[in-house]
Lab assay of single mutants.
Amino acid sequence: GPGLTDLFKTEKAAVKKMAKAIMADPSKADDVYQKWADKGYTLTQLSDFLKSKTRGKYDRVYNGYMTYR
């Protein structure tokens, strides 16, 4: 089956995709945050998933999740 690194890459891609969806349409934020909360994502995990070469690119999404939880 898929190894943990593959799983991480898949999760990371999914999280980034959802983060971009929030940035494009902030009204989606609560739905996405709820999904992440259901998956039990911690802020540390989210921070790892949303690492970007562009500093602060996903800060709004991260901060939103922090206040959501």
Rank of each mutant, 00 (worst) to 15 (best):
G1T: 14
G1K: 10
P2D: 11
P2M: 10
G3E: 13
G3D: 14
G3N: 13
G3S: 14
G3K: 10
G3C: 15
G3F: 07
L4R: 09
T5C: 15
T5W: 04
T5S: 11
D6T: 07
D6P: 12
D6S: 08
L7D: 15
F8E: 09
F8R: 11
K9I: 06
K9F: 07
K9Y: 09
T10V: 11
T10W: 10
T10D: 11
T10I: 14
T10G: 09
E11F: 04
K12W: 04
A13Y: 08
A14W: 14
A14Y: 11
A14E: 14
A14T: 09
A14M: 14
V15R: 00
V15Q: 00
K16N: 04
K16A: 04
K16Y: 04
K16W: 04
K16V: 14
K16G: 03
K17H: 07
K17S: 08
M18G: 06
A19H: 00
A19G: 02
A19W: 02
A19S: 03
A19L: 02
K20I: 08
K20H: 10
K20R: 14
K20V: 06
K20A: 10
A21D: 08
A21V: 09
I22W: 01
I22N: 00
M23N: 04
A24M: 12
A24K: 12
A24I: 12
D25L: 03
D25V: 03
P26V: 05
P26D: 05
P26A: 06
P26E: 07
P26R: 05
S27R: 11
S27E: 08
S27F: 05
S27V: 04
S27N: 07
K28M: 13
K28A: 08
A29C: 06
D30H: 14
D30P: 11
D31C: 15
D31V: 11
D31M: 11
D31I: 10
V32Y: 06
Y33F: 08
Q34C: 08
Q34I: 04
Q34H: 09
K35A: 13
K35M: 15
W36Q: 00
A37N: 08
A37T: 09
A37M: 15
D38N: 11
D38L: 10
K39V: 07
G40D: 04
G40F: 03
Y41V: 06
T42P: 02
L43E: 05
T44F: 09
Q45I: 09
Q45W: 03
Q45R: 07
Q45K: 07
L46G: 00
L46M: 10
D48C: 15
D48R: 15
D48Q: 15
D48L: 15
F49K: 02
F49I: 06
L50G: 01
L50H: 00
L50C: 02
L50F: 04
K53A: 09
K53V: 05
K53S: 10
T54G: 07
T54P: 15
R55I: 14
G56P: 04
G56C: 09
G56F: 07
G56M: 04
Y58N: 02
Y58T: 01
D59C: 11
R60K: 14
R60Y: 12
R60V: 14
R60E: 13
R60G: 12
V61T: 02
V61D: 01
N63F: 15
N63G: 06
N63E: 13
N63M: 13
N63C: 15
G64F: 02
G64M: 03
G64I: 02
G64V: 02
Y65V: 00
Y65S: 00
M66N: 07
M66K: 14
T67L: 14
Y68P: 00
Y68K: 02
Y68Q: 02
Y68M: 03
R69T: 12
R69D: 03
